[in-house]
Amino acid sequence: MDFTTFLIQLLNAVQYGLLLFLVASGLTLVFGIMGIINLAHGSFYMLGAYMAFVLTSMTGNLLLTILIGIPLALAFGAALEALLFTHLYKRNHLDQVLLTYGLILIFEELRSLTVGDDVHGVPVPEMFSMSIPLSDTLSYPVYRLVISAVCLLLALGLYLLIQRTRLGMMIRAGSHDRDMVQALGININGLYRTVFAIGVALAALAGMLAAPISSVYPGMGGGVLIISFVIVVIGGIGSVWGALVAALVIGFADTFGKVFMPDMAGLTVYLVMALVLLWRPEGIFRKG
């Protein structure tokens, strides 16, 4: 591999890592901070991608789609929390697994009934549809770079929200001791509903942003779910920076795994996960 190719692979790794962070960011909130084992995370991602497909074919504009899609996803998340998840906080993890696994099946069937089992595509927004030439044969799609920028902004935004705002302080306190926060006069139910809704909206946003490059197809949430859990766990549960670092590590492991040991490419991600957890069982950035 010559130096230019190496640099391009490096770019691939960073870009894929940032995309993974975007995909896992919703789970960082719901699983990492609220502590709910949410297997339906992939379904929310899929919901976003299908929303992008349906809304873009009506509006013809991905940006407009995202502006409409996010409030819809927030409302959907809040409704789900009020109807189902609110009953789960005091139950054990197995109940959460059962409920969210059931949701996966329900969402897949609903998707099949309403949109069908076809593969669909979403056009890349006009203004980002060009590519930058990197070598004489390879160019890089600008839209992928735009996604990377959005991911970085999102990481910063999430960090500020959790660490630097009053809402973030309440969220952190709530995840630590729910009853005490309630006793201090904070509306813990409303707080959790907000956080859950944001988590769902983030997953849907990831689906909407990724739709033009990943295409939209049945079962697309499954692969996303596992890699998201990997990232949240090795990043250190509840840490936004941890998730970002973990996503980049996985991006590197996957990209260079495919290059240097193609026969083991399916294994590298989990190998890295095992090594990190042996080194730091609580994840890279776990705080006391």
Partner: peptide, 27 residues
Amino acid sequence: FQSFLTEIAALKPDAVYVFFAGGGAAK
């Protein structure tokens, strides 16, 4: 597929043959 595309671009073959179907094919 990005890392494979980079590799193909570096190898500069006359042709590429792939086997994909469904969502993976579109992507």
